[in-house]
Write a protein that binds this DNA or RNA. Structure first.
Lengths: 193, 193
DNA sequence: GAATCCATGCCTACTAGTAGGTAGTCATAT
DNA sequence: ATATGACTACCTACTAGTAGGCATGGATTC
């Protein structure tokens, strides 16, 4: 469906949106970054909202694919969650991708075109569902011990990850992300801290 | 320092920024909302960055003032934290102010003027410090029991609150905020859940 | 095999609208 | 008399999006 250039635009749009959000990124920014004229980007992605939707869809598909891979490759559900969190820690530390696009757009929700809002909602749903499934599996395998309901703990873990990202960005200090995620993972782990 | 109109502009800017963030709000929006011409707003607040700084400063002063009031009026540190969280639950539910301005701008950090970034950082610092102090007092009074270090737990609580706001906004479901904050408060409380 | 057709991809050049910000005028109130 | 606060009118820069031209290259047709 997309050509080589289409993909290049998509990736560039992703990395720009991660830095600046939806309203503060423009076709001109992408144009300069990929070395193509502004109008040519409209050829690949006619509207800004459509481009954002494409970016979010790709992001969600990547999330789902990665989750499936983790599920298949790692035995321990606890280790899978840890891998997910570790992935983001790496992203934040190697500051090129210092935030989750969907989470960022979640903050901008009220000023987003409806079609974009839908994709953001889908991401939060998909992520929450995977965490919940994984927590459940961890409880079954006795590597995870929860204090509240699974839904509660899944939403809490997601909130900690996103809130941790926010703090890391605001304080310009990646350690805070590790701190809060470590605390949370230690809490739900049945192993000794 | 500010006249009556200055305050009106400030409040309006606040509520618009809470909805749309920094880059997606304009002097024209405020102009329409307060019933004054665009140029007249520049008379009160010459630059957009300056206006944002003023909004954040007011917001932080209000936070500090409220925290001092809570500290003075409520005996239990646990109840103080609960009051803070309850305040936000009310804001989110009565959807007029559905987010913390400073937290929102924290997400936009990389595309913010430096002067604004400073204020955002100060807010995160101030909030984190108050939570940490309050947790410490709660531990002393044996109404709060922590598993990790105080700094860890303070940052975690802040992350849960901000992450919960994000989820509530993204999923358009305020209950998720109550869910994650309840879970967290129950966890650190020494009372029966 | 050559000529035609048509889609792809990029371009220049443009539009209407909005952004933040400025200059200068005028009324009011101290 | 001067400062305040509002105004009209304007500026430059940038926004998303459009129109139409030009090259390529792979099919189809004669």
């Amino acid at each position: 469906m997309h050509g080589e250039m289409g993909e290049k635009i998509l990736n560039t749009a992703d990395s720009i949106m991660v830095q600046h959000g939806y309203s503060a990124f423009s076709y001109a920014d992408i144009s300069e970054a990929v070395g193509i004229r502004k109008a040519s980007i409209h050829h690949h992605f006619p509207t800004k909202a459509g481009l954002a939707v494409a970016v979010l869809r790709a992001h969600r598909e990547k999330l789902i694919r990665s989750a499936e891979m983790l599920d298949a490759q790692m035995e321990s559900p606890l280790a899978r969650l840890q891998a997910y969190i570790h992935h983001w820690e790496g992203c934040i530390r190697g500051k090129t991708v210092s935030f989750c696009v969907a989470a960022l757009l979640g903050a901008e929700m009220p000023s987003l075109p409806e079609e974009v809002q839908v994709e953001v909602r889908l991401h939060f749903k998909a992520l929450g569902d995977w965490i919940e499934r994984t927590l459940k599996a961890g409880v079954r395998k006795r590597v995870i011990r929860l204090q509240g309901t699974v839904a509660m703990e899944a939403q809490t873990l997601m909130a900690v990850v996103h809130g941790g990202m926010l703090s890391a960005r605001a304080l310009e200090n990646c350690d805070v992300f590790r701190m809060v995620t470590d605390a949370t993972m230690n809490r739900i782990s049945t192993e000794k801290s």
